[in-house]
């Protein structure tokens, strides 16, 4: 039998070991989900698609935290009207996610830093993906409460837009953490700009609600959408230039 296989191997010029390894790989590994297949096609990278698909798996706590934050935000908005949650949530989220995926808690951080797919690129990708998932949850929530729509606008939409911007800058600068810093500063700018007229007053008299009111954020919705679309375009352009550098044709 073994000799027969060897003859087949030689006659057909087939590497049977490789074939069997492929079969074992299909048995040992999970089948590729339809979602991962689509993501691979969209982002054009099997590595980034896997990172996106496994992020919630690795850090289920972040999905839970998002749901909890949404619930808490809903409760505070309904009961007290205090704007602190939507005001601080994006920054807290950036800090928290940075810690979770940075050297602080990512157990494989050192290994990730030796990969051609830069570790500092992985961070904003994961952040954006998790918050996109959170947005979907919140959108589902809007079916049950009108207040949830405000929470979506006040927190999640800006967060997703700024995360995409961070990725775009990260791609342009080839994986620098600059994107995260710029996004954080932009959020500060968005928050501080409506408060410009009040900055002379004592802190206790500043009405922070103006900065993150539904009206203020809604007025910026087109900008958030524009930033999101532009960031995606930049990501696509970056890939195109990267591929063309290798002398390969752009394909979608």
């Amino acid at each position: 039998m073994e000799n027969h296989e060897k003859h087949l191997d030689q006659d057909l010029n087939i590497d049977l070991d490789h074939v069997w390894q492929g079969i074992r790989g299909e048995i040992w590994g999970k089948p590729l989900s339809p979602m991962e297949r689509i993501t691979r096609k969209l982002v054009g990278s099997a590595a980034i698609a896997r990172v996106m698909m496994t992020s919630p798996l690795m850090y289920l706590a972040w999905i839970t935290a998002s749901v909890m934050a949404i619930a808490l935000g809903l409760m505070l908005t309904v009961t007290s009207g205090q704007p602190l949650v939507p005001l601080m949530a994006p920054l807290l989220a950036i800090a928290g996610v940075t810690y979770a995926y940075g050297p602080g808690a990512d157990s494989a951080w050192e290994l990730s830093r030796t990969m051609p797919v830069s570790a500092s690129m992985l961070l904003p990708i994961r952040v954006a993906f998790i918050f996109t998932v959170s947005t979907v949850f919140t959108c589902i929530g809007t079916f049950f409460s009108a207040t949830a729509t405000d929470i979506t606008m006040l927190w999640l939409l800006p967060m997703v837009a700024l995360s995409l911007l961070a990725i775009a800058i990260g791609r342009l600068t080839n994986g620098s953490a600059l994107g995260g810093v710029v996004s954080g500063l932009i959020w500060f700018g968005i928050v501080l700009e409506p408060l410009r007229d009040q900055l002379q007053r004592p802190l206790s008299q500043i009405d922070m609600g103006v900065a993150v009111s539904g009206a203020a954020i809604r007025s910026l919705t087109p900008i958030y959408l524009l930033v999101s679309v532009a960031s995606i375009a930049v990501m696509m352009f970056w890939r195109e230039s990267d591929l063309s550098r290798k002398g390969r044709l752009w394909k979608w």
Binding site: G22, L111, M115
Partner: peptide
């Protein structure tokens, strides 16, 4: 398997070659 495959993908190996390489 998932762990080795994850890093094989991050190393930008040809996706079609990843699973046999992970098995090996």
């Amino acid at each position: 398997f998932e762990f080795v495959e994850y890093f094989a993908l991050l190393k930008e190996m040809d996706p079609g070659m990843v699973r046999p390489a992970v098995v090996q």
